[in-house]
Design a protein around this nucleic acid. Structure first.
Lengths: 333, 333
DNA sequence: CTGAAAGCGCTTACAG
DNA sequence: CTGAAAGCGCTTACAG
């Protein structure tokens, strides 16, 4: 069943059938109804490939994530897909991992699939070495690029991100206000976004007259074996009384490591996470975290995308504030 | 840049260019090289739409998940995407939610996008009411359907699943062997797959001479507010000494509820999860769980899919065994 | 308001 | 081993 069949059965030309399908141009109400009836009777669906061939679009958006198993990234994919379908778009998903080469390959793959736009989830795509971001600029030459939780200034690249510096600042401030004197910052990777959080951490420390430098930025791998050793070293090194963690998972693991070392949370040690995921809720004690409003971010991205694809304006940069969610891990009375 | 440009620049017909691109038919080595050089010099990529139009395929697979935010489902998506790209396929992702109507819509959406096959993640797609599975049968008329953790007998539907009955049986047996006398089974939904786990639970109980009936099957909603009340009721009702939970998340929450009621895990109450996710590892005490080998399942599914799309044989049903991972939540000495 | 016709960029029998 | 040509199923100026 194709447009010719519909044309024959309804006694009009294929041009007219096309017009009623796409609601384009003028079609007499009578004609439209006649055609619609035939279409419905046959539950006809236009062939996407043919349509794509003439319009150069299949209404498909490429979503790139370094790791969909990460709760935060999965959440973003969820919200993005949710929004995209409202506008008739379909999501093509790529999990790239952290290797630059793989990221490039996936961008090319999606380009070859002729997606209408690209959405990158997470700061993991913005490389520390500025030159390594060329692949993003390259991508933006073909299609609009949306960067979630990342910031890059370039034509056709749109960045939408939570103000993580302020977020981390507030989490740190809460601990300091409750009496912590010696906080430390823990991340699993050294990225642009982590550095921004660390800036917030430093700012709060400065404000409370606590001297901290780059040595307070710790990168602990996610490998479970080396992790134990890392924490042993950390706790031996100094009696830290607050762990500002770059995400909830790190916080949960850190909290457990502390307990294994006989350190009580929050009595001896306060712990904060980031992203406000289920892990923060489920952990015990439940972990104070920062809700960075992933849903808002994703909704904005998809809205922006429809605007840009419509040839309308959209700000190149959107930064919005997150929200602290206090829980037991920082409750000290 | 299209196939005509390549044809002109290399001085051969478009038919020959097409043959070298697709490695089809006979092409003289000399000709092939000449054409390849031109293709690479221009970094030419065939237009997918045109290709799709003539071959009726874009090498795209539809993946359906009810909820990508669920750790287990996210994990499956990860492994599936990983495998699919090895074979040159791209993943189109749909998050359907639990409503039957939405599931149907998404199946149609993917059909309209002309995907080559459909992969359904999780038993959430196999409805309890047999009639409601018609949409799956319908889908299988157009493309091969792969059902992960679900079982449905129908032409062009391939089921791949872990033996959850035995899995739940073994988890229950561990608790009983360690002295539990009064276990109860907790799920968040009443699905086909949950029922299979429950059968395993009952089997273990019978074997240990413990009488249990349908009243031992509890469905607790995921809504945090009603949840607290549910657990209060549960713990008031009887001094259960083992909670066999249908997944790790439920187990983690149950464990916390127990602690809030002054019940110690594992001393007073043993707890088991399912899926062996990070949550089981991170929880404290760490939770005994069942590794249902999601990666194996996904690898099999993608392999099966390539076989079927190649016109080869693949078993309609594959059931494999899971693996118990014992942790602190059942450690009683 | 409607239709004839060109064009989108491939693949694939078929002929040679 | 290679090429001419039909065909895939749409959209969209253009003419009327």
């Amino acid at each position: 069943m194709n447009i010719y069949d519909i044309s024959k059965q309804s006694g009009v030309s294929i041009a007219t059938v096309s017009r009623v399908i796409n609601n384009s141009g003028y079609v007499a109400e009578k004609t439209r109804k006649k055609v619609m009836d035939v279409i419905e009777a046959n539950s006809y669906m236009p062939n996407v490939f043919a349509k794509g061939m003439s319009t150069s679009s299949m209404k498909t958006i490429g979503i790139l994530t370094t790791n969909i198993r990460d709760l935060y990234q999965a959440q973003c994919v969820y919200y993005l897909e949710q929004e995209l379908k409202k506008y008739g778009y379909t999501a093509m998903l790529c999990c790239t991992g952290d290797e630059l080469a793989a990221k490039k390959e996936h961008v090319e793959l999606l380009a070859s699939r002729k997606v209408d736009a690209l959405i990158f989830i997470g700061s993991h795509f913005v490389e520390k070495n500025a030159k390594d971001n060329a692949y993003l600029y390259g991508a933006s030459n073909n299609v609009p690029v949306f960067l979630l939780n990342g910031l890059l200034r370039h034509d056709n690249i749109y960045s939408i991100l939570c103000d993580d510096e302020t977020g981390a600042y507030e989490l740190t401030r809460i601990c300091l206000e409750k009496g912590a004197k010696d906080p430390v910052f823990i991340a699993s990777r050294d990225t642009f976004s982590m550095r921004r959080k660390f800036q917030g951490f430093l700012k709060a420390c400065r404000q409370y007259g606590i001297e901290k430098d780059d040595s307070a930025f710790r990168v602990f791998s996610e490998d479970p074996e080396s992790l134990d050793a890392s924490y042993t070293l950390l706790f031996d090194e100094s009696a830290y009384d607050a762990l500002i963690c770059a995400d909830d998972e790190i916080a949960a693991v850190a909290q457990r490591a502390a307990r294994n070392h006989g350190i009580r949370v929050p009595e001896d040690l306060m712990v904060t996470g980031y992203n406000d995921s289920v892990i923060a809720t489920i952990a015990s004690p439940a972990i104070t975290s920062l809700d960075n409003r992933a849903q808002y971010m994703c909704t904005q991205a998809v809205y922006g995308l429809t605007q840009v694809l419509d040839g309308k304006e959209f700000p190149e940069e959107t930064m919005y504030s997150g929200k602290v969610v206090e829980r037991e891990s920082t409750k000290r009375t």
